[in-house]
Structure formats: structure tokens, C-alpha cells
Amino acid sequence: MPGFFKLKSDALADQLATGEAIMRVSKSVFKNTANSEWKKFNDDTRGWLFANGYIYEGPGAGPNGEIPDSVEIVPVYDTANRMHVRIPWAGDLANPPKVLDEPDYGIGKNRFPVLLARYFMRKCR
């Protein structure tokens, strides 16, 4: 059975920080300067995800939810004229998990980064 990525924290402030980190990666894609968020992400994707609020729950996960090397992570990048379509793994369709109502996304300008954090690493379900 495959695992799932989850946010480490239910706190909006933590999810806001995760969303802001995702936005920094997006704004710096393919920029390999020393302080580029893209460089940090590209050099150690598993470590970046864990450091920025995600844990892995599944086979081989580390004691704190670290992502094992056995999990292949494939970043994809949308552009103004290219959008990726995600096809779910057929095994996830055999016995899909119960979908719960989403909690509040926060207010004002914090709303979008929290939404981004919650959906960035989701599997299709």
C-alpha cells in the first residue's frame, strides 16, 4: 500500500509558512543562485519538503515522517501555456479514503498560501 504526504501541523500559521515556501520555489524555478529556494528544493527535494512542513506516512517513512529514498518524487512545472494533468494511480481508486470536509483556510491574504500548502503534495483521491 502506498503512502501519503501530509502537513505536519494543523496550525494555520505553520501552513501559511509552508505556502509561502512553495511560492518562493515557484518564483525561483531554474534559478541556481546560492540563496535560491529552487536550488534548495532541487538539491534535496525530500529534505526541503520535510523542512517546509510535510511528512510522509507510508512504507519506509523515517521515525518523524521523513521521506524514504524508495519514494520517487517527480516535480512538474506549469507555464503560461502548459498545464500538467495528474492521473491517479489505479490502486488508489480501488478503496479510496473517506473525504472529510476541509477546515477553514484562514482569512485575508493568508488564505491562498494555506490553500496552496494543503494541496501541494496531495495524491489524487
Rank of each mutant, 00 (worst) to 15 (best):
V25A: 02
I55S: 13
F5S: 11
A17Y: 04
A34S: 10
G65Q: 00
A117V: 00
P68M: 12
N42Y: 10
D43I: 03
F4K: 09
N110F: 03
G60K: 04
W89E: 12
L93R: 11
V85D: 09
T18G: 08
T45Q: 15
H84P: 01
T79V: 02
D44V: 14
W48N: 08
W89L: 08
A17I: 03
E37S: 15
T33C: 03
M1I: 09
V114F: 03
V85W: 15
G53L: 02
K40M: 11
T18F: 06
Y54G: 05
L115M: 14
N42K: 12
N32F: 13
H84M: 06
S28P: 02
K98R: 13
R24Y: 01
A17C: 04
I67P: 01
P2W: 14
A117F: 00
F50G: 03
N42L: 02
V74L: 07
R125L: 14
R125Q: 09
I73L: 13
S28C: 04
W48I: 14
F41W: 06
C124H: 08
G3C: 04
E57M: 05
R118H: 05
G65N: 01
A90S: 06
A61W: 02
R118N: 04
A34P: 02
A80E: 14
Y105M: 09
T79I: 00
E102Y: 09
R125N: 14
A17V: 08
Y56R: 00
F4Y: 10
F112T: 10
K8L: 06
F50R: 10
R86L: 11
I22L: 13
V71H: 00
C124M: 08
K8R: 12
M23L: 12
D14E: 14
N52F: 04
G3L: 04
V71Q: 00
D10L: 08
F120W: 15
V85C: 08
T18K: 06
P59C: 07
Y77I: 07
G53H: 04
I73P: 01
M23Q: 15
K31F: 03
M121L: 11
A13W: 05
E37M: 12
A117Y: 00
M121F: 11
I73N: 02
G62N: 04
D78Y: 03
P68E: 11
K27R: 14
A34F: 05
P97N: 07
A34Y: 03
F120Q: 01
K123F: 05
Y54K: 03
F50P: 04
I22H: 02
A11M: 07
L7T: 14
L100V: 05
R111N: 03
